[in-house]
């Protein structure tokens, strides 16, 4: 995007000090308590591990009620949650982890912060690793015997990765 050149709203800039000194230093513990994000390079992934088998069980207990028994879309069935399992073809419908998620780290990050929808933040790190393993396997991305952890999760190359491009539009007359 193109920042608006020099058209910034005014602030009180005449007498502005180098620092105002408001706020207080955040402690490492405070940062750690909130810093739950996971980056594509694996930064933020916690210790722990999980496997497909445990993930399948957890999925049945905690997720199936909203996302369906096996996470796939069934004609005529409207579930509270999205379909999670499909195949890896770019053209296939619906959008699922298999055909539309460019990074496996996103799956870990999202599920840990927001799922299960009715009990967000209730999964242990190991549980999230296991469910991630299960869903990646169900989407035919990893084998059934993979044990996922902070090391190998970021290395998974998602089928949809190659489809994603950054928006390069910059305004102007072009329709793009």
């Amino acid at each position: 995007f193109i920042p608006s050149q020099g058209k910034k709203p005014l602030t009180d800039s005449l007498k502005r000090p180098a620092k105002f000194g408001f706020g207080r230093p955040a402690t490492l513990q405070e940062i750690a308590a909130w810093d739950i994000d996971v980056r594509p390079d694996g930064k933020g992934l916690p210790a722990g591990q999980g496997d497909v088998k445990k993930g399948k069980l957890l999925y049945a207990q905690k997720c199936a009620i909203c996302h369906g028994v096996d996470g796939t879309e069934k004609p005529g069935v409207k579930l509270p949650g999205n379909a999670l399992v499909g195949d890896t073809l770019a053209t296939s419908k619906p959008k699922t982890i298999g055909n539309y998620w460019p990074y496996a780290t996103t799956l870990f990050d999202y599920m840990r912060r927001a799922m299960p929808y009715n009990l967000p933040g209730s999964l242990s790190n190991n549980e999230v690793y296991s469910i991630t393993a299960y869903l990646l396997n169900a989407n035919k991305i990893i084998k059934a015997d993979v044990v996922l952890d902070a090391k190998n999760l970021p290395k998974i190359v998602m089928p949809a990765k190659k489809l994603f491009i950054m928006d390069d539009r910059k305004g102007g007359p072009e329709i793009k």
Partner: peptide, 11 residues
């Protein structure tokens, strides 16, 4: 240094 590729900016 880099974007996080959160669910809302990917899926």
């Amino acid at each position: 240094e880099e974007p996080y590729m959160t669910r809302e900016e990917t899926s």
